[in-house]
Structures are given as structure tokens and as C-alpha cells.
Design a binder for these strands. Structure first.
Length: 570
RNA sequence: GCGCCUGUAGCUCAUUUGGAUAGAGCAUCGGAUUUCUAAUCCGAGGGUAGUAGGUUCGAAUCCUACCAGGCGCGCCA
């Protein structure tokens, strides 16, 4: 309908002045909030009155004069400072019900991403501990975005980048070794700063011990200690042997990854691929990009380290790729990783990061452009951390100290549906406060129940209709009988649905969809309280059933995208 | 100090990328079930959109300055 109106305006404008014709993309038509302004309105006259050297109202009059007759449009009028308001015929409004009942699960799909491959990388938490509530937000966001892209026709691959190389993992390994030693000999006291202290470290140590007994025991572990962590790690590696250290390392990483996968599974998030950082080192991808950068003058040596000239690419300073001790930095493998993404020929590469990584964007963007040469587009989306509260007390979150609420705990306390909906109900780049007490103590406060209840009510009506031999029969002609204000509101809302999907996908904003669901639910609850659906009049009854059946499909389709269940009974 | 993000009702957030009278939920107060589920509905109160300027037909939205908060500024990841 919107497009029909846009086209009518375009044609009218063309009549007025052929030379200055305006592209259809520049014509805005919006749904009206207030029905006294009609169904759709356009601001075109106000926007372009300057260009046409006239005032908005006169231009609006001219445009209206030139608008062709159309069976769907009942009335066109000027209002306010120059809005052109369109009143649409009932029949054309109700056609969306027929459309939904025909398309069913396909209603809302669009093709803006047809033939485009998109890679969306998210969560990618270091395998040094369980996922916490911050990761949960990124997980829900990335997963929902993927669904929105799929609904919009893209080929989507979801990937988790596993940082299984580097210093943090060595520190984890060391932490496990310490606990392992303490398990064997309680008199050993090895509580050093900078090591991971969560209970899960004990669990890993116990598993190592169960499977290997004292195989990894170092008698004088205490003597290997050095306040410089790198030295300490090196000492342990040399004493234990590189191979044994690696064994503990992979056991630890596997243990934690299993736990992460389990938690994601509970969240309803699954990945198409798990990309291991260490493979970039073993398969020469890392060497290749460093050679390439060297050859093409993107690097230099200083203080025995190799530097990346990221300043030339918009970063605030240059960054180290290879450290003085010849270890590679996280950045260097990350560049190799992004080059790998480009080699896999994705049209669009999307990264979802925690907002604390925002300073990292310029250097990755710069590197990405070097390798993609315009063939692939990179978008980095930031997710703000969720501040967790227990009542009024802010819960401090530190992976190191082990004092944090895990995502698994949150899911257990609040439930998958509520957790996902809550995470997605606000803009990703907005800070959010999550009060566990509130979420726990009063479930009805949670909007997800409100939406689910609306759906359950619809299902209940259909159940009732069958029990009373009032089986639903669809007939397009009956729709004309819908005349209640609530019915018209709902129909309008339904026609807006495909646009919400498009908009949420293009703007990376799933909260638009959760908002929409809340609004539709609200319309339905109002309607339900005001009007009886299962009335004696068979035609009116079926018209009303058609309407709520259409709503039911929209709830089903949208809940699938958000990743929550839609129970038929509550 | 520099950079990025944010500031909307007592609280948590929206506001369809610049539109018409800034809206919901929670909380407070008052109403609604002999009728499809009261996890619901209807109504009331509650606002200098951080502050001050600017841009234009029109600003919560864009620009500038200031104020407040968050994050970042490693040869950590």
C-alpha cells in the first residue's frame, strides 16, 4: 500500500515539473499515529517546497490535484503545516488478513538479502571461564540478528571465534595446575594474583587429576614462581615439558568450551562453526598476512618488535604485531582471522563485540580494508554490558576473581524466554540494568508473559470454537464486517509487520520487533476485553476468527525470530 | 588529558533515522469478571527530553559548548 501511494505521489510530481522529478526512494510515506490524520501521510510537500520555489501548502494542493484515481484510496487531504494524508479503503486494509492466512509461516519474509552471504560472529568469549550475563546479551542479540537476516533472505553463517592461543589461555592452564597441585598436597599454598580463581578451575583440576593421577605433578612448583607472569609460565613449561603443558591446556579449554556450549544450548543459541585461533598459527595464515603486510609496507620494526602502521589507517597509534619475545599479539591473529573471513567470500562480515572493545575498531577496520579491497563489507556492532543488580546492590563482575553471575545461573533463575526477551527488548548500544531480584520475584512484570498470554488467549478461543461446533471457516467477504475500532487498529498493526522485520534487520535493531510484539499483544488484550469473538452471527464470528488467526501467525513468526516459545496454554 | 557511547515520568525503557498532542510497563490512586483464561482490561495523576545556544516550515532526534555517567587509551585478550 505504501508503495502504491509513493508511486501516486511520484506521478503527480512528475506532472508538476518534469525536470525536477524526485526519485521514489526520496518520497516518504508513513503510517499515521492518529487516525484523524488518515491511514498514511507524506511530508513530501514540506520537504521539497523550497526546491519547487513555493510554500508547503500550495505544493501539497498541487500534488493532490495531480493524484490519479485509485480504488484503494478513499480520500486525500492536507493537514497541519503541509502533510498530505491518505485515507485507505476498508477492503484494501483487510486484504492483509487474507494475505497472512495464505502465506502463514512465510508472512513477514522479504528478499532484501537475496544471494548475499553474511557471516555473523558473536559471543566469542575467551574459553577461560563460564559465560556471564554480559555474554548472554551478545548471544541473544547475535542469534536474533541472524534470524532477522534469514527472514530477509540472506544466507547466514553464525560463527564463534575461540581464542585458544595466547597468554590468557596459558594463565588459565597455570591456574588449573595450581589447583591440581593443591588437590594432591593440601599443604601447598599457591594463591598468586592474576590467576583465575573461580570454582570451575577446581573442577578442571579434579578432572585432570581423575584422568592422570599425579602425572603432571611438579615437586617444587613454588620455586618456579616469578612475579613476571611470562617468566613464571615459561619456567613451568620448561619444567613440565611443552607437551605436558599443552595437554593440560587442551583439557582445560575443552572443559570450558563444553560448558559454554551447554549454556548456549540452554539459551537456544547454536553456531554453524567454531573457529579456532590456534589453527591460524599452525596453518600459516598468520605468517602469510605478516609477510603480506611486510611486503606492502604496512609494518616497521622498533624496539625489537614488529609494528603495524595502523595510524595511517585511522587508528590513534601504531600497534605491535610481533612482540620482542617473538610471540604474536592478539591483533595479528585477529587480522589473519579477518583475512580468512574475506577468503571465504562473504559479502558482509558482521562482528558483535562488547562495548569495551570499541577502541579496537579502527585497527581491525583498517586491516580489513587492506585485505578485502572493497569486495567485502565489515560491520562491527557493539553491545553494552548489562549491569546486574540484586535488589539495590550492584553485582560486581570480574572473571579473574570468580565473582560473577554466570549466564547459566541467570537462565535457571529467570528462564530462557524471559531472559532472551529482556535482553532483546532494548537497543544493543544502550546501557541496561538487570535486576535479578525483580526478574525472579515477580514474573508477571516480564513483558514476555504479556505477549505469550495474548497468543494463548487466541489459541484458547479456537479451542473453544471447536468445542462449541463453531469451526472456523474463512471467507474474504466476511472481513467487511469488521468495524470495531480495535479491529481496525489490529489490521493496521498487522500490515506493519513485514516492515518491522525489514527495519529491524537493516538497522540491526531487534528491539523494534519486541516492541512490536508488545504493541500487538496490547491491541489484542484490549480487543478481547471489549468484544466477544465467538458471537452467534456466523459471518461476524468468522471475520473475527480470521483476524485473530492472522495475529496468531504473526506471534508465531515473530517469536521464532526472537527465539522464545509461544505456548498455546498458560 | 584525548577518543567513543549515553542522558526522556519516581524506576526500567520506547518514540517507526527530522513530523502533527513525547508514549508503554513498574510503582501510586480509582474502577471492570453470572459471557471466549483477571498473567487481562478501562481511567487518573505524573515531563523544562541533562543545561544553554544554533540549523528550518518543524528538533528528544542534526550541529556547537558546557554538566553528569559508562567505556577505552597494553609488546592483555
Amino acid at each position: 500500500m505504501k508503495n502504491i501511494i509513493k508511486d501516486l505521489i511520484r506521478k503527480s510530481l512528475y506532472k508538476i515539473n518534469k525536470d525536477k522529478s524526485i526519485l521514489i526512494e526520496n518520497i516518504e510515506v508513513n503510517l499515521c499515529k492518529d487516525k484523524k490524520f488518515g491511514d498514511f501521510s507524506s511530508n513530501i510537500a514540506m520537504k521539497y517546497s523550497n526546491q519547487y520555489k513555493t510554500n508547503p501548502k500550495d505544493l501539497a494542493k498541487e500534488i493532490i490535484k495531480g493524484i490519479e484515481k485509485n480504488e484503494n484510496i478513499v480520500k486525500v487531504e492536507i493537514a497541519g503545516p503541509g502533510f498530505i494524508n491518505f485515507f485507505v479503503s476498508k477492503g484494501s486494509q483487510f486484504s492483509v488478513i487474507t494475505q497472512i492466512l495464505n502465506e502463514k509461516n512465510l508472512f513477514g519474509k522479504n528478499e532484501i538479502g537475496a544471494n548475499l552471504n553474511v557471516l555473523i560472529e558473536f559471543v566469542s568469549a575467551n574459553p577461560t571461564g563460564p559465560l556471564h550475563v554480559g555474554h548472554g546479551r551478545g548471544a541473544a542479540y547475535g542469534d536474533c540478528l541472524s534470524n532477522l537476516f534469514k527472514e530477509s533472505g540472506y544466507n547466514v553463517s553464525k560463527e564463534y571465534y575461540v581464542n585458544d592461543a595466547g597468554k590468557q589461555i596459558d594463565i588459565l592452564t597455570l591456574s588449573v595446575l595450581q589447583r591440581y597441585h593443591q588437590l594432591i598436597d593440601e599443604s601447598i599454598n599457591l594463591d598468586y594474583e592474576d590467576l583465575y580463581k573461580g570454582d570451575y578451575v577446581w573442577d578442571i583440576a579434579a578432572e585432570v587429576h581423575r584422568n592422570n593421577n599425579t602425572k603432571f605433578f611438579i615437586k617444587d612448583l613454588n620455586n618456579l614462581y616469578n612475579s613476571d607472569l611470562d617468566t613464571y609460565i615459561l619456567n613451568v613449561k620448561n619444567n613440565l615439558s611443552q607437551e605436558k603443558f599443552k595437554k593440560i591446556k587442551s583439557t582445560s579449554v575443552d572443559f570450558i568450551l563444553d560448558n559454554i556450549k551447554k549454556t548456549l544450548n540452554i539459551s537456544g543459541v547454536d553456531f554453524d562453526s567454531w573457529f579456532s585461533e590456534s589453527t591460524l598459527v599452525t596453518n600459516n595464515d598468520l605468517k602469510d598476512i605478516i609477510n603480506y603486510l611486510n611486503k606492502n609496507n604496512f609494518t616497521y620494526e622498533k624496539d625489537k618488535a614488529l609494528w603495524f602502521k595502523s595510524m595511517d589507517l585511522g587508528d590513534e597509534k601504531d600497534r605491535v604485531l610481533v612482540k620482542e619475545n617473538k610471540d604474536h599479539t592478539y591483533l595479528s591473529t585477529d587480522i589473519a582471522y579477518h583475512n580468512n573471513k574475506i577468503k571465504r567470500k562473504f559479502d558482509h562480515v558482521i562482528n558483535i563485540w562488547g562495548a569495551d572493545h570499541h577502541g579496537y575498531i579502527p585497527r581491525i577496520n583498517g586491516a580489513f580494508n587492506i585485505f578485502s579491497k572493497g569486495k567485502s563489507k565489515l560491520t562491527i556492532l557493539l553491545v553494552q554490558f548489562a549491569n546486574l543488580y540484586r535488589g539495590k546492590d550492584k553485582v560486581s563482575m570480574s572473571t579473574r576473581s570468580g565473582e560473577f553471575v554466570t549466564l547459566e545461573q541467570l537462565l535457571k533463575e529467570v528462564g530462557k524466554d524471559a531472559t532472551r526477551f529482556f535482553y532483546l527488548a532494548r537497543k544493543a548500544d544502550q546501557h541496561m540494568d538487570f535486576d535479578i531480584e525483580l526478574a525472579k520475584s515477580n514474573n508477571s512484570n516480564n513483558p514476555v508473559y504479556y505477549v505469550q498470554y495474548a497468543h494463548a488467549r487466541i489459541c484458547s478461543i479456537f479451542k473453544q470454537s471447536k468445542e462449541n461446533n463453531m469451526d472456523f471457516k474463512f471467507n474474504k467477504k466476511f472481513l467487511e464486517l469488521l468495524a470495531e475500532e480495535e479491529e481496525l487498529n489490529i489490521v493496521k498493526k498487522l500490515s506493519y509487520y513485514p516492515e518491522v522485520i525489514k527495519k529491524s534487520a537493516l538497522r540491526y535493531e531487534p528491539h523494534l520487533l519486541t516492541n512490536y510484539m508488545k504493541e500487538l499483544a496490547q491491541e489484542i488484550h484490549s480487543y478481547y476485553n471489549k468484544s466477544q469473538i465467538l458471537v452467534e452471527d456466523e459471518e461476524l464470528r468468522n471475520a473475527r476468527l480470521s483476524l485473530i488467526e492472522a495475529c496468531r501467525y504473526v506471534f508465531l513468526n515473530s517469536s521464532k525470530i526472537i527465539g522464545i516459545s509461544m505456548p498455546e496454554k498458560m
